[in-house]
């Protein structure tokens, strides 16, 4: 069995949800102007999502994860290069995990 029915169903629904987000705002703007409150809500969404993903990782993580996050944010501030910063952060996590103790 290469593809399981429940997995394919979940992926199909995820794709519909994803595409609805992509076209939803575009369709919406055809009829209604986005008010400043709606805009503030949508504008706050990315940073809220980032916080929701990183919060539990930081809460459950040890020194490796904290150093990784500091590296990602610090490198991004210094270099402005997201690829370089993400690679450096992953390298810091991998290296500190390999350290004994």
């Amino acid at each position: 069995m290469i593809m399981r029915a429940d997995i394919v169903t979940a992926i199909l629904l995820m794709g519909v949800a994803s595409y609805l987000c992509r076209i939803g705002g575009y369709l919406f703007m055809r009829y209604v102007a986005i008010t400043s409150r709606v805009e503030a809500w949508l504008n706050s969404m990315p940073i809220a999502v980032i916080g929701a993903v990183l919060g539990p990782i930081a809460a459950k993580g040890g020194a490796s994860e904290w150093l990784g996050l500091v590296t990602a944010i610090g490198m991004m501030r210094l270099t402005g290069n997201d690829f370089l910063s993400a690679v450096a952060a992953v390298a810091v996590v991998a290296t500190t995990r390999a350290l004994p103790g």
Binding site: V53, L54, I57, G68, L69, A72, D82, A89, A91
Partner: peptide, 17 residues
């Protein structure tokens, strides 16, 4: 071991900036 479970966190860390 390679820190690959941390890629999303690293990517989101850079995006937070």
């Amino acid at each position: 071991t390679w820190g690959l479970d941390f890629v999303l966190a690293a990517y989101f860390g850079t995006m937070s900036v």
